[in-house]
């Protein structure tokens, strides 16, 4: 449990009425958020709620159209304090697993870079695949490699964009536990985007529910579950079922009301 003392209450990451429009179409509208150091925040929302845009803003890959985004008091610079994990792995096919991790560490001298890459490959259990090219790895291994690449940069902020959405159910559950284990070991701030209510409830300190077109903060929920999560399965917690039902209901409502959704207007009741 992180207790933020009033003296150091300035948040690590701050969105101040940040908006982003693409060619006149708003993707995110006036997002205001404060995220404390070492907080695990999950962004939950249907398609079109601007989750990816939000992470790109936090990474400094794009600048807000209006408003401000600040990481430790300054506009974020890509790769400076943050690292990103993508749904589609985004590995360099022409580099071995070790070289893929080392790619994120250009600032280190060669020997140190290699040692650091090996250390993080070991951390995610890929030591034996260090010399393999990505095509020889399974989906779960590829995502572990992508995670190792992000963690090896030793970022303060880890940005995860639906990282496990393309994995099968079993690999996904194992990866969720892996992320909790790794962030427990070396605490960092995590911004995690997902479609999955269960994933959000399992991982988050705080869930931020986003509504679509344009993306807005619809609701914030601080979860009452203890850390570390493997000490007590949150699914056994009395409030879990109620929270799950509530989040599902909100998501369902958003999807049914979104004219661009496949389920628009299909209200069974």
């Amino acid at each position: 449990m992180n207790l933020v003392s009033p003296a150091s209450s300035s948040p690590l990451l701050r969105f101040d009425r940040a908006s982003k429009t693409y060619g006149g179409r708003p993707a995110l509208a006036e997002i205001s958020l404060e995220i404390a150091a070492e907080e695990f925040v999950v962004f939950l929302g249907p398609s079109g709620c601007g989750k990816t845009t939000l992470l790109s803003l936090a990474a400094g890959l794009i600048a807000p159209s209006s408003g401000r985004v600040e990481l430790a008091g300054a506009p974020p610079v890509p790769g400076r304090r943050s690292a990103m994990v993508f749904q589609s792995f985004r590995l360099l096919a022409w580099k071995t697993a070790r070289e893929n991790v080392a790619f994120a560490l250009p600032h280190l001298p060669a020997a140190e870079r290699r040692a650091r890459a090996d250390r993080y490959l070991e951390l995610v259990g890929l030591t034996r695949a260090a010399e393999s090219y990505p095509r020889a790895l399974s989906g779960g291994m590829k995502q572990r490699l992508a995670l190792a690449r992000a963690l090896a940069a030793e970022p303060e902020v880890l940005l995860m964009d639906e990282p496990f959405a393309s994995l099968d159910a079993q690999a996904r559950e194992l990866m969720q536990q892996e992320v909790l284990r790794l962030t427990e070991r070396r605490p960092m701030t995590v911004l995690f985007v997902t479609h999955s209510v269960d994933e959000a409830l399992f991982l988050a300190d705080r869930i931020i529910l986003l509504s679509p077109r344009p993306g807005r903060v619809a609701e914030e929920i601080r979860l009452p579950f203890a850390r570390p999560r493997w000490a007590e399965d949150p699914r056994a917690h009395p409030e879990h079922a109620a929270l799950r039902a509530h989040l599902w209901e909100r998501l369902r409502e958003m999807v049914l009301k979104d004219p661009q959704s496949d389920f628009y207007g299909r209200d069974a009741t």
Binding site: P78, G79, A83, R90, A153
Partner: peptide, 12 residues
């Protein structure tokens, strides 16, 4: 473009 974005996110 996805790989380029990934590379940018590492600060390249």
């Amino acid at each position: 473009p996805e790989l380029i974005e990934m590379a940018r996110s590492t600060g390249a």
